[in-house]
Write a protein that binds this DNA or RNA. Sequence first.
RNA 1: GCAGAUGACCGGGCAAUCGCCCACGCUUGGGUUGACAGCAAAACUUUCAAUGUAACUUUUGCCUUCAACCGAAGCGUGGGAGGAAAGUCCGAACACCACAGGACAGCAGGCUGGCUAACGGCCAGGCGGAGCGAUCCGACGGAAAAGUGCAACAGAGAACAGACAGCCCUAAGCGUAUUAUGCGCCGGGCGAUGGUGAAACGGUGAGGUAAAGGCUUCACCAGCGGACGUGGCGACAUGUCCGGCUAGGCAAACCCCCUGCGGUGCAAGACCAAAUAGGGAAACGUUAUAGCGUGUCCGGCUUACUUCGCUUCGGCGAGGGCGUUUCCGGGUAGGUCGCAACGAGCGGCGCAGUAAUGCGACGCCCAGAUGAAUGAUUGCCGCCUUCGUCGUUUGAUGAGGGAACAGAAUUCGGCUUACAGGUUGUCUGCACGG
Length: 111
Amino acid sequence: MLSNSQQFRKVYDQGQRFHTSYFSAFILKNDVGELRFGITVTRKIGNAVVRNRCKRRLREALRTRIDLSGLTGDLVLNAKSDFVKAEFTQIVEALEKTIARLRELLSKVDT
RNA sequence: GCAGAUGACCGGGCAAUCGCCCACGCUUGGGUUGACAGCAAAACUUUCAAUGUAACUUUUGCCUUCAACCGAAGCGUGGGAGGAAAGUCCGAACACCACAGGACAGCAGGCUGGCUAACGGCCAGGCGGAGCGAUCCGACGGAAAAGUGCAACAGAGAACAGACAGCCCUAAGCGUAUUAUGCGCCGGGCGAUGGUGAAACGGUGAGGUAAAGGCUUCACCAGCGGACGUGGCGACAUGUCCGGCUAGGCAAACCCCCUGCGGUGCAAGACCAAAUAGGGAAACGUUAUAGCGUGUCCGGCUUACUUCGCUUCGGCGAGGGCGUUUCCGGGUAGGUCGCAACGAGCGGCGCAGUAAUGCGACGCCCAGAUGAAUGAUUGCCGCCUUCGUCGUUUGAUGAGGGAACAGAAUUCGGCUUACAGGUUGUCUGCACGG
């Protein structure tokens, strides 16, 4: 879990990016050796209740439906306004595409 | 039955799977510190003539047991968002800072009585306004006896008022047929009628007048001031008499009167406290405790400050600088507490009170996160709604869609604002029936 704004800032500035219509993803290799992630929902998306629900659904989708094994680094997800109306299965599909793409990007960085 | 008024309450439910946070308990293994015992090594001392042995003490290391604390994993039990958690508008608790007393300034409040820790809150009442009514709304002290200021639009005129339409007097003159009728210059009177406006300087009647007017101390009414009663704790209501003779509105404009108020807010504040840099003190060094070299030690090699005084000219002493070690104190990152279960606490009951509320006994312990937990997914049921089919009064069934406002952040008491849908008590008006 990423816990302060310095860590988020570093991922935004130096990380690899990938965008879908529901959210934007940023990832950066870290030296911890495990996956740390953070979720950001701006006030533009909605009030506190809506923002909380976005974070919970993204976290649950990552936890239950996505295979994250072997992936290391700092991952940041930014929800967009379409996320609020999205079906859960659509979110999962978008996440699958995103993670596959991020694996490619990270392996390129290694070589 | 329809249309309203008002109070109280709810704010989808169940299941499956996978998860999150907190408290407590148990188990497992870990770390730190301390105590006791044991073993090993080294040193020292004592005993014996000595090798050596034994004992004692100290230090270091290992390890057993016990205790305390810290943090981890697993399992179990219990708990886990709102009526507004929201806006952050009032009032407090709590914390820190400041503080002789008073005045000015500033801010807030403003009918009466009560409740409360307090309030700009609540309850009961008075007065004014809206409504047929239940009921609702009101910053509701002072504008005639301090002063200043302001007033859109409309209207003739808006604060020492004002003739637009008009009414009346006078009547040059026009016109006609000399009268009458008609039009009426100049000058003067009128605030009664119309129209405007939120508001036009009391109302109705009578007298009076050329026409009018509180012009009239003519009558009645309204309003104002005063005195004296009656009811009420009081706001106030009400009665009689007297006076004066009509006085516009706005104080959520300045202002006047009365009352209250020190400031900052849990990022308050308390404690622990790293790395790095810097401050202070002591000791040591300044021909080594630095550098080179090395696994380590000895040895070796290399290099090094200044001022003053004394001097046998080799140095010595004191101070400063520099270096090393130890200690001290301040601050930052970070962490712990504050802060999560004992309270202005919650629940129903009883008593007092019209009520707000208070008192009493009984029962209960009820979120505590910090990139921020309190959930996610799926299915079924219930609710609303659209379409189709059947029945065609309620309804049955299939397919689809929808479900508000909104997320605790130190804690309470209020206020204000937002809110799909629903439950329920009491009351009012109208209609109909018995």
